[in-house]
Design a protein around this nucleic acid. Sequence first.
DNA 1: TTGTAGGCGTTATCAG
DNA 2: CTGATAACGCCTACAA
Lengths: 367, 367
Amino acid sequence: MQEVADRVNVSISTVSFVVNNTKPVAPETRRKVLQAIEELGYRRNAMARALASRRSRILCLMFPLMQHDLSSFVDAATAAAAELGYNLVLWPKHNHDAALDVTSVIEAGIADGVLLLEVQLDDERVTRLQAGGAPFALIGRTRDVSGIDFVDIDFERTTRLAVEELARRGHHDLALVLEDMDGTPQAGYAPPVRVEQTFLASVAEQGLAGHVFKVPNAESPDRPLLELLARDAPETTAIVGMHDTAIARLMTAMRHRGLRAPEDLSIIAVESTSVIAPLLDPPLTRYVAPGGELGRRAAEALIGRLEGRTGPPTQLLVSSSLLEGATMADAPRHRAPLDHLLADRPAPPRDDDQPEHALADRTPEHA
Amino acid sequence: MQEVADRVNVSISTVSFVVNNTKPVAPETRRKVLQAIEELGYRRNAMARALASRRSRILCLMFPLMQHDLSSFVDAATAAAAELGYNLVLWPKHNHDAALDVTSVIEAGIADGVLLLEVQLDDERVTRLQAGGAPFALIGRTRDVSGIDFVDIDFERTTRLAVEELARRGHHDLALVLEDMDGTPQAGYAPPVRVEQTFLASVAEQGLAGHVFKVPNAESPDRPLLELLARDAPETTAIVGMHDTAIARLMTAMRHRGLRAPEDLSIIAVESTSVIAPLLDPPLTRYVAPGGELGRRAAEALIGRLEGRTGPPTQLLVSSSLLEGATMADAPRHRAPLDHLLADRPAPPRDDDQPEHALADRTPEHA
DNA sequence: TTGTAGGCGTTATCAG
DNA sequence: CTGATAACGCCTACAA
C-alpha cells in the first residue's frame, strides 16, 4: 500500500480511501492511484483489513450434517487438517470466472493453501496457482502433473478391472455410458476422459467390441439411452457406467420394456454416487472410491508443503473397490439384439408401464 | 492478552508462549497463565495472529460444482452475500461437540456472523450464539423464535395442503413416513416434528385416519416399511412422505409385490431431495422448497443485522410448490386391505422380483 | 480533498 | 525461562 502511495506521491490513507470508497477523492488522484494499484498488482490484505476495521466481511455457514457424496471426503479432510492444527473451510465458487480467481484467497491472506476439486485435464486454475506461487494440492489431476501434489482415484485401474471382469463373464459387446460435458464449464473434466480412453484400450486388448455413449445430464426425451443402445449397439450385453442418473433412467426404461438387469444387460458402474446406487432396483454393482482416504491424504499433502516439506511431490492414486450390487451376471447365452427386443415390445403407453396387477380397481386418471 | 498477563504478573510475551507452545515456560507460570485465561475467558484473535505470523492456518477447499441438494441454496446465499460485499464460506462441523463450538468462529474474528442450518426445536447452538452476542440467522427455526432472525420453509402449510389434496381426492386413510432420528444427534430436528404435528391435526380436522411411521435411515431388513404398513395401517391408500430413501425403498417393495403407485397407493412428498425424486419410477409427486430464495433471504437478514439494522427480526416462512410427478391419484374405489394384498402375493424370492420376461435366455446366477 | 498518527491483537526477535 | 519492543498491513479519527 505504501508503495502504491509513493508511486503516485500521495499518502497511504488516500490509497485506502480509493480502495474502500470511504472518502471522496479527486478524480484525477483516484485514477492515478487505481493505475498504480494495477501496475504494482497490489491486493489488500484481508486479515489486516479485518484487524483494523474489526470486521472480517466473512460469513460462516455452518453445516453439521452432510448427506451428499462429498461427505466422507470433506469429513476426513477436515479431521486431518484439524489434527495438524489447521481449519478447513469450503469456499463455494460457482461460476467459471469466479473459479479462475483461485489465487485471491491466498493473496488476501485468508487461507494458506488451496485444495482443488473437479480438476480438468488442462486446468486454468492450476496454471494460475502455479504462476502465483500459491501452495495447493489437487484432488484429481491434470494432464501434466510434474511437480504437482495430487491425490486421485485410479480410474484407469478401475475401468480395466471392470472390463476384464465383464470379459471373464463372457461379455463381448460392451457399452460405456458417460456424462456429456461438452459445452459446459466442466468440459475437459478429467475422469470421464480417462475412463473413455482406458475403456477403448482395454476393450481392444481383450478383443471385445466397445461403444461409447455420452449422455447429457438432462437426457433427451425423444432419444432415451435405451433406444440409442438398440440402434447403435444392439448386441451390447453389458454396460460400464459412470453417470448414475443416466443409468437410473436406463434401468427404468428397461423395466418398462420388459428387459431385466442383469439377465438381459449387466451393468457395472466405475464411479457411483452413494445416494442413488443402492436405491436402484436391483441395486447397482459398482466400484466405490475411498472418499475418506482421498480427503485425508490431500489435506496432509497440502499441509506438508505449508510446513516446508521439500522433496518430490505427493502423487497418489487410490484404488476403488467393488461393491456387489445385483446388476452384474454372466453374459446371456443367446439373447436377441436389443433392437429386436424393443421391437417385440414397443414403447408402452403409461398404463402399461407397470407390471400387470389385478388386485385393485383401476382409477385411470392421475396427477 | 494484556489482561491475562497483568492478572498473573507476567509479560504479554509469556502468555503468547504458553498459548502457542513456542517456548519453554516454567510449569508453575504456565499453570497460572492457563488459569487466568480460563477465568477471563480469553480467546486469541485469529486475524491478529494471522497478521503477525503471516499464516492464517486456514485451508480453502474450492468446489466449483455442487450437485447435491444444498446447491441452489448455497449458490443464492453466496451470491447475495457477494452483492453486499461479503464472502460466504462453509465451515464443516461434523460431530455434535464441534457444532456446539459455534461462537468460536466469531470470537476468533474469522467471521462476522453465522448462518445456522439444520436447526433443532431446542437448539443449544442458538442458545450459545445468543449468550455470546454473536450475530446470526437461522435457516429453520427453533421452538421459541422471539427476537431471532430466521428464514424457514413453511412445513405446516405444505403438510396441510398435502392432506387436503388427498382428502379432496377421496383418500380416507393416510400414513405419514418420517425419518426416525431418535438416538442420533439430529433428534429434535424441527421439520419432522412440525410435519408430524400438523399431519395429525390436519387429518383430524378433515375427519380422516392417519398413521405415523418413523423409519430409520437404514431400514430394518426384517420389517420393511411395506410390511409395517400392511400390519398397522392396512387400509392406507395414500402416503405423505418426508423421507425419500424410505419412499424409494417402499416403491421398490411395492413393485416386487405387484402393487402400483399411484393406483394402489398414492404418494406425495412434503419435502424431497431433488436428486432422488425424479429418478423414481414413476417420478415422485412432491412439494419443493425454493432453495434459492431461502439462501438469499437468510444471507440478507444476517448482513442486515451486521450493518446495524435494528427493529423487528426477519421472520420469514417461504412456501413450497407442488411439482407434479406421477404418484398421486384419486383413491381406489374398493381396494383390498394391504395385508390381504400382500398375503395374496407373498414375498417372492429374488428371481420373481422382476416382471416376467420371456425374451432372453435365463442365466440364473448373478453377482 | 489530503495527510498524520495511533491503534487493531498477536507474534517474533533480541536481550536479559 | 522471561520481558521489551518492533513489526504485521491496514483503517480512521483528527487535523490541515
